[in-house]
Amino acid sequence: MSRQIVSANRLTDGLVVFRTAAGTWTERAEDARVYSVEEAEIEVAAASREGTVVVGVYAVDLEEQGSAPSRLRERIRATGPTVAYGPAAVISPRRAAGA
């Protein structure tokens, strides 16, 4: 039986959020409520009415075992870029020069 979580982007800052059991939104995919496909469809319809809170509500398939999304795109979306970026990713001068 396929399981899904419900996701969207938060309107104000665009960050990825997930629907909780309390009907709120969380940035942590692991805190998302897990639905059956039928339940998720109902929840997506309900959450889509929160147009001043979130954008682009949809259901995300989970792996058969575990709680991670099944598609790579959704796993990256849930956990962020797979590469370090910004000030945390600055390459040391020595390395940058290929020395």
Binding site: V83, Y85, G86, P87, A89, V90, I91, R95, A96
Partner: peptide
């Protein structure tokens, strides 16, 4: 394009 870097990215400090 430093070795191991992200092509085209620059930090605010850079």
């Amino acid at each position: 394009k430093p070795v191991g870097g992200i092509p085209g990215d620059a930090t605010a400090d850079q």
